[in-house]
Amino acid sequence: MDWALLAESAVNGGLVGLMYSLVAMGIVLIYKSSSVPNLAQGAMTMLGAYVVLAFANNAKAPIWLAIILAIVTMFGVGMAIERVALRRLAGRPIIMILMMTLGLEILLRAGSMTIWGGTGRPMPIGISDDPLFLGPLLINRTYAVGAAVAVAMFALFVLFFRTRMGVVLRAISDDYTAAWSVGISVERGVALSWAMSAVVATIAGVLWASVQGVDQSLAQLLLKGVTVAVLGGLDSIGGALLAGILLGIVEGVAASFLDPLLGGASRDLVDAAMLILTIMVRPHGLFGRHDIERI
């Protein structure tokens, strides 16, 4: 057994896992405020990356400006999605809502392809490809940056949920009707959560695109995002962070064992198995709230 290799795949796995957390956080944000599981988060991630490229290539903006412009644009897109697609579905059976997010997934994914075409393109954000040396371990720089951004986003959201607006969003997720009864604008709160989630998607999109380029495969981050979100407990931002690390490590280590045995591509299998296992053993995840039952 090669311990150094194992440690390296664990560390890099953890960092990649934190980048999964970025996708998962978007799902958690929306679930937390409206109990809608957003299956379009992967497509939103992909759309975010394409919008950044559009600003950078077509409008010739420098990359940092393109990212900021894209964030603003996607904020609006998130609001619009809630306004047009989700608001009228409030109170409908969950199957309709799931189908709606699947419809959005198809529309956003195919829509981006229609506008920008399917050939993969690079996303140069100026992070060098040289690995970082941590003792004997080689660490991918982009992963390290992505992980740092994920932790920063986590801290930001924890702070946000303590503010007045954050408290209002949490109140909405607890009880729609009671929120209405004290004059909270439920619709605006939910729209805000979609908008924030679209912003997180853009950031995740940029980071992932700088790893694997901008193309359709960004949308497949959905499976990772969902697995991490469920594992962490669908409404826990901190859970998403830790579950990301956990999934990343498990995936990295398992892949280094299984890939030679199974002829590669065992990561998706590990994800799906983790998802099933979580749901069967502990559906509310590591840190999801149980509904409070008083005796």
Partner: peptide, 14 residues
């Protein structure tokens, strides 16, 4: 042309 029908398909479901 290759992707537009798929996008419209999503839009129709919505």
């Amino acid at each position: 042309l290759a992707h537009l029908p798929q996008a419209l398909y999503g839009a129709l479901i919505i």
